[in-house]
Amino acid sequence: MQSLGSDVAMALFLAMLLDAWLGEPRWLWSRVAHPAVIMGRAVGWLDQRLNTGAGRGEGVLALAVLVIGAGVLGWALQQLPGRVADVLVCAVLLAQKSLVDHVRAVADGLRTSLDDGRRAVAMIVSRDTGEMRESDVARSAIESAAENFSDGVIAPAFWFLVGGLPALLIYKVTNTADSMIGYRTQRHEKFGWAAARFDDVLNWIPARLTAVIIGLACPGARLGPVRRDARLHRSPNAGWPEAAMAYGLQIALSGPRRYDGVMRDYAFVNDGGKRELGADDIAAAIRVLWVSWGMALTLVVAVGLVMRVAFSFW
């Protein structure tokens, strides 16, 4: 019991290293379904069965089923002897290397042609990409890098550290549900409301923690301007890592973009920053991702040491 906290920190440390080394090997996930795919199938099944358009109640029920199921599965896996299951499951559900690989593919694509850059960025964003300029492609990739560093690395790590595998799986299934049914479309505005709001709650601390970590990696990302511009973002959480990245690289992010053929006039984050972006700016964002990852890893080690010392006095 005394070493429980430090053991979780050690498992997270190993999982982060394993994820950074292996990422998502195609030889494995081409043979078996990735846990995120399984979660997506569960969300889709509940959407088909429960989304009758009657109101938010069905969406609350769907989220409850997902959360309880994920929590029970996480608890069961945690009962296995040792920490092997913790390390492997956590590593699979972290996304540092895969995030970097997808973002780097956009830079590589842009260096080949604008069309290749558009095709690469279409793999990681939901906005219209067919008429993007080079700067739009680069900006979209950098925004995705910042937001997904929070959603795919810091938030899963945070919740694993707080509550082990049950908390990690609850976070991941909620985040998956939000990405599938959390949009304000006619079909999902009511049914996806619970998933979207719970995802906002679960990401509240990690998003701000991510901004702090990116700020430490980029001394130019001062907290005051980051906090101010984070409020300009349409999301209560995504604006924090995005603003930190924008100020850290001294570039303008967000701004107008097109969804489903409709131009949305969103405000720029760091409005005075550089707006003409390219592959080199994406490469700079990737460097920030790795420095930030290293700082997060160091923070995990520090938390583990503090827990071990604290428990020794009990």
Rank of each mutant, 00 (worst) to 15 (best):
L223K: 10
Y259A: 12
M245H: 07
G248M: 09
L223Y: 13
F198R: 04
D229C: 07
M245V: 08
R222F: 12
G248R: 03
G192T: 05
I181C: 07
A207C: 06
A243M: 02
A238N: 10
T185Q: 11
V201L: 13
A194D: 08
F191M: 03
A211H: 02
I251F: 06
D178Q: 03
L232W: 06
P219H: 05
T210N: 03
R208Q: 05
E242P: 00
P236C: 12
A243H: 01
I205Y: 12
G239E: 00
G182K: 04
R231T: 13
S235D: 11
S254N: 15
F198I: 15
R197P: 12
H188K: 10
I213W: 02
K190W: 12
A230P: 05
R222P: 05
I251D: 09
A238K: 11
I213V: 15
A177Q: 04
A177P: 08
I181R: 08
P241W: 01
W204D: 11
R258P: 07
A230E: 00
R258T: 15
Y259F: 14
F198Q: 12
R234C: 12
A194E: 03
N203K: 05
R227S: 13
W240S: 03
R208F: 03
A246K: 01
D200M: 09
K190S: 14
G192Y: 09
A246Q: 03
G220M: 09
P219A: 05
L232T: 11
I251V: 15
L249G: 08
L209S: 01
E189W: 11
I214D: 00
N203C: 05
P206Y: 04
T185V: 07
A196G: 11
A252S: 15
L249Y: 12
I205S: 02
A252M: 06
A211K: 02
D229G: 06
R197N: 12
I213C: 02
I205N: 00
P225K: 02
A238H: 03
G248C: 04
M180Y: 01
G239L: 03
P219L: 08
R184D: 14
D178I: 03
T176W: 07
I205D: 01
G239F: 03
P256R: 04
D200H: 03
R187F: 06
L253K: 05
H233S: 08
R187K: 15
R234N: 12
A194P: 11
H233M: 06
I181M: 05
A177W: 10
G215V: 08
S254D: 15
M180L: 14
V201N: 01
A252V: 02
V226A: 00
G239Y: 00
A238G: 15
M245Y: 13
G220P: 00
W204C: 06
V212E: 09
W204M: 09
A238F: 08
Q186L: 14
P225A: 06
A195C: 11
R257Q: 14
A246W: 00
Y247F: 15
R234K: 14
K190C: 09
A252W: 07
R228G: 04
R187T: 13
A194W: 01
L216Q: 10
R197G: 11
A246T: 00
Y247C: 01
R222A: 15
R257M: 13
W240R: 01
P219K: 07
